[in-house]
Design a protein around this nucleic acid. Structure first.
Lengths: 337, 337
DNA sequence: CTCCCAAATGTAAACGTTCGCATCAGCGGT
DNA sequence: ACCGCTGATGCGAACGTTTACATTTGGGAG
């Protein structure tokens, strides 16, 4: 491995000059700079990041912690974070808590020591997290904590659009199939429902409980959904919506003919299942990128960056899982489309 | 940030002893060790990895490069790699080439400098890669290169099972909807088809071209599939299978009644689409874990580990996208199940 | 009682950078 | 011709470890 010393020798300058030529190009004379750069080029020199981090007290590495890497939602975010970080010359330690709050705290503890800051996505144990993180830079996705930056998609607007869409289709009694208890996003969406339903005359929101953010969670909601006699539901996310639809299908309830279902997140799944999901879209890659911007922005020794929005736009994508309200048929069979 | 010096002072020993108490516990007297450890505990000391890496010439970090983080196949692998590495006290830089061979080389170059070794999954530019990697430890998933370790799922056996399954259902003229040109896995599966088809009397394999490993790739194969007059196909992977089925469905061809489809990888998608996919399962998390084992095994200064298998078992998961051969109906309508 | 060896611990150098400070050359103003 | 200032560069310390080597101590063998 070629070091700064060899470069300095080759260019006939001191190592300090080489360092400067890289970090602060206009602190060295043009001629010298060229000599240094060409030496770097021929020798194929790359700075040792451990060494520079050691001296500078900075690692140029950030951490990302998500609950579940294989969940398309989080892998979208992970893509955004890694892409933006790479663009900024920063590396990312990616980790996964597997939805386990204890593991989350533990992993976070380890992550904090070896990075300049952490992007924490959809944390399950935030309150403990604060103690762990201490004064370190922290950016939260889908949660809020005093003293930390936050960013999320504008669910509130998504909910509003979903409501209006269902309203326009004639639905009045609308269910909400909730996410995991303790989920900040879930609380936020419930609040949005409560806030926006009154805008639409005659609309009634029915709480259909809290469910795991998995296919099984959707499965388990089917009974409640039927019992509630709603004509449409909004699900916590696409996965739950898919699980619900699948179970309903097996029970002989046709979507969208007998029940309209709206998902959340617009994961690629939404366009692959039958029926394709009407769902609230948020740009996950951008979410990850902006979170990274936010984090890098508060890192010492980094250029200050323009204000970053803390709320990203959401919009409803209409597909085949929602349909106009029809008179219910007695035997529980849809009438076809 | 508390350093080894403060710990040494608190325990009344030299920093060397602290270092030893951590790295080589039985090199220090039991009493001393306890004093050191409790000092570490009360002060909340964690070694600075940049410093230790600098001195020891090792980063305790590995790199992972995948073509597409949002692809469930790769996120499964990423989960395995990060999990195993975490268990071994190693951090992982996760990166993504977005299927771009040029980016792959570039990212790999960067990765190599700041890690002890790299896990490279389904590379698109392997030959160039070798030059980039130089003498660095490298483990390949789904590819082979002289001088590098390799690991993959036993596609060959998966193909064999898929063929037998279709054969047992009565299919004789079987199509293969191939993956991207240049894909090592694709070549391998073609070879396996050629090798195993002759074992089954009367079976004929029809090559249905190379396609992108995306939903669109499956879409675009539909025409060829119909023209080929096959009664069953094996697709490069689940995504392609899903795209194909969706397009066929729109064209009025019913799966599995008129055409049986076998996917590959058994991603969670397989169980969510309609019909649920019959597909070849390989354990992706284990694949990632073993790849990491392999990499850590060749890293200097790490305990030698037991032999790691380079081929992981595959098995066929039968669901609803395959069915017994039936006489074709003239108008292109299935007969229902 | 002496000597030697092993075990335990300490000392200090080294890893490859960055950065404050010192040095030096050249130049313009007086 | 001299002074001082500025811009370019070099020097050397420091970052927090690990580790080769030196030192100390205690105990057992002769």
């Amino acid at each position: 491995m070629v070091t700064i010393r060899e470069v300095a020798a080759a260019a006939g300058v001191s190592i300090a000059t080489v360092s400067r030529a890289l970090a602060d190009p206009d602190k060295v004379a043009a001629g010298t700079r060229d000599r240094v750069l060409s030496a770097i080029d021929t020798l194929g020199y790359t700075p040792n990041r451990a060494a520079s981090g050691l001296r500078a007290g900075r690692t140029n590495t950030i951490g990302l912690l998500v609950p579940d890497l294989t969940n398309p939602y989080f892998s979208g975010v992970a893509r955004g974070v890694t892409a933006q970080a790479t663009d900024e010359g920063v590396s990312v330690f990616v980790t996964e808590s597997r939805e386990d709050p204890a593991a989350e705290v533990e992993i976070l503890r380890g992550l904090v020591r070896q990075t300049d800051g952490v992007v924490l996505c959809s944390p399950r144990a935030v309150h403990d997290d604060r103690g762990v993180i201490g004064p370190r830079p922290l950016v939260l996705i889908n949660n809020e904590l005093p003293g930390a930056q936050s960013i999320s998609v504008d669910d509130r607007h998504g909910i509003r659009e979903a409501l209006r869409h269902l309203y326009a289709l004639g639905h009045r009694r609308i269910g909400y199939v909730g996410g995991p208890s303790g989920s900040w996003s879930d609380r936020r969406r419930r609040a949005a429902l409560a806030a926006h339903a009154p805008e639409l005359a005659g609309v009634q929101i029915v709480d259909l409980g809290e469910h795991e953010a998995t296919v099984q969670g959707g499965d388990s909601a089917a009974g409640e959904v039927i019992a509630a006699e709603v004509t449409a539901v909004i699900a916590f996310n696409d996965i739950v919506a898919v699980g619900l639809i699948r179970r309903l299908h097996r029970m002989g309830v046709r979507v969208p003919h007998e029940l309209s279902v709206v998902g959340f997140d617009n994961t690629f799944l939404a366009d692959l299942v039958t029926p394709a999901l009407t769902t609230v879209h948020g740009d996950l890659e951008t979410l990850g990128r902006r979170a990274t911007d936010l984090l890098l922005g508060v890192l010492p020794g980094r250029p200050v960056r323009a204000a970053v929005p803390h709320l990203l736009p959401a919009r409803l994508v209409v597909r085949d899982s929602t349909a106009p309200l029809r008179a219910r048929l007695p035997a529980g069979y849809g009438s076809g489309s």
